[in-house]
Amino acid sequence: RGIAFSCPGKVDTDTGIISFGGTLPFLDGVSLIKEFQPKYDMPVSVINDGKAAALAELWLGNLKGIANGLAIVLGTGVGAGIILDGKLYQGKHFQAGEISFMMKPSAAPSYNDMYGFSGSAVNLIQKVNMVLGTEDKKDGTAAFEAINQKDPRVYPIFETYAKEIALMICNIQAVLDLEKIVIGGGISAQPIVTGEIRKQYLAIRTNFPFMANTLTEVEIDSCRFLNDANLLGALYQLLLHDK
């Protein structure tokens, strides 16, 4: 009945044109609607993967019934989808939620100061495997086996990573005042990920009583659909687009 795409990059959901393509730069300037609709003669929709994850959670997941929420997708970078007043907020240029581009204070800003780098799940796994001496530095199973065992050689690396995400959440919450934030991406299948992010978030609030007394604590949970959230959200976008 239709074809639904979820992809990185800035996506105009009306035209299907992808700008830059994120980690898939060859998609820059491509309209998947124009590429596939004439060929298959059926509805085609395209949406950014982070925004798709938010749609999935709003539709059938852990943001269902939430008027103001956020889905954070931890992968190569940090994707996100913002829900405001019960709807996906894309922004004037379809780039709302590109939290990979949020930057930390630095005298000489570089890519390393972007949350898309320090919040990258891929980078986390590589760092852990470097310490472990794992042959395949991309081996997520080996990395999380050690993390779940709280291996003292690598658990501090994981704690630092979770703190980075927690700091990002503090900044976002100060701006948007959300009800609930859900964590997605491949590593979200590990309960320890959301658990440690929540722990670090609460620790930050404890260390800054003025913040805790002023800003209401946001609920932090995992995405119900974990790494499949972007696929289900792409389907929901198709259903909305085809009405």
Rank of each mutant, 00 (worst) to 15 (best):
G2L: 01
G2T: 10
S6E: 05
K10H: 11
D12C: 10
T15K: 08
G16T: 04
I17W: 03
G22Q: 01
G22M: 06
G22T: 02
L24P: 01
G29Q: 07
G29S: 06
P38R: 09
D41H: 12
V44K: 07
V46F: 07
V46T: 04
N48M: 09
D49L: 01
E57I: 03
W59C: 09
G69P: 01
G75K: 02
G81M: 05
I82C: 07
H93M: 04
A96R: 05
E98M: 07
F101Q: 12
P105Q: 08
P109R: 10
N112F: 13
G116P: 07
S118R: 12
S120V: 00
N123D: 08
D136T: 01
K137P: 00
E145D: 14
K150N: 07
P152S: 14
A162M: 06
I165W: 06
C170E: 14
N171T: 10
N171F: 07
A174K: 10
L176N: 04
L176S: 05
D177V: 06
G184D: 10
S188R: 05
Q190A: 11
V193K: 00
I197V: 14
R198W: 03
Q200S: 05
L202S: 11
A203K: 14
A203W: 02
R205G: 06
R205V: 02
P209H: 04
P209Q: 04
T214M: 12
T216V: 07
T216G: 09
I220F: 06
R224Q: 14
R224S: 10
F225H: 12
D228E: 15
L238H: 08
L240W: 04
K243G: 10
K243A: 11
